[in-house]
């Protein structure tokens, strides 16, 4: 293989332009870029999975480290392939049930910790009108309460509850606006990176 970077940069530029061509409309160039990236990604992921998961976490553990209990997850993994059999397909439900059960068991306390208790800690702020900080904290507390009321599903959004929920959704939308602007800026920087690659690294038109 030629190690000349210009050749590789030209290939990269071809696919960059091919991907950008989607902005005009779907076309053969985009289809080539799409097919290549999907194909390479599938192949790369299969190899990655073999070397980072199957080999070190299954094969090496049993063959070299003699941890024979690793056969159990291996068998559970094999059971997943019984899906392809009409007769034995039901066996694949056991590893799936185990996987979802363990996953939920890990996820639920973690969600409570990060999205409830941590947020609760951060919202218990000293409030007041005497200082800017106290007033700012008061606004934070009121906005959090309004936001929570919007997500209250047991009551119809009418009257005081409705007005508070409306205030809550306004607060949420203001937050979304800030987040949108921030992310768009980050995306623009990615675009700048690709343009710098095309004009600088590939064509040497800019430094």
């Amino acid at each position: 293989m030629d190690s000349n970077p210009w050749i590789w940069n030209t290939i990269a530029a071809f696919f960059t332009i091919g991907t950008f061509s989607f902005l005009y409309k779907d076309n053969p160039l985009y289809k080539i870029a799409e097919s290549v990236v999907v194909g390479i990604a599938a192949g790369y992921f299969a190899v990655l999975l073999f070397w980072t998961s199957l080999r070190p976490k299954f094969w090496d553990m049993i063959v070299y480290e003699h941890k024979y209990w690793y056969v159990i997850p291996g068998l559970l993994g094999i059971m997943m392939y019984f899906r392809f059999s009409r007769k034995w397909g039901w066996l694949s439900r056991y590893p799936l049930a185990l996987y979802i059960g363990i996953g939920s068991g890990i996820a639920i306390p973690l969600m409570l910790q990060t999205f409830v208790l941590r947020q609760l800690e951060a919202t218990m702020l000293p409030i007041g009108f005497a200082s800017f900080e106290g007033f700012s904290n008061l606004l934070v507390v009121l906005m959090v309460l309004a936001g929570l009321i919007y997500f209250f599903f047991s009551m119809e959004h009418k009257g005081v509850v409705g007005k508070t929920a409306t205030f809550g959704i306004w607060v949420i939308m203001i937050g979304f606006g800030a987040s949108f602007g921030y992310t768009v800026m980050a995306r623009v920087s990615l675009l700048i990176g690709r343009i710098q690659f095309l004009l600088g690294t590939w064509l040497h038109l800019v430094d």
Partner: peptide
């Protein structure tokens, strides 16, 4: 959620 709202109000008042 109602419990959380009560805790927020109580916590903020106590912290004050």
């Amino acid at each position: 959620k109602a419990l959380v709202m009560i805790l927020i109000v109580a916590g903020a008042v106590l912290m004050s």
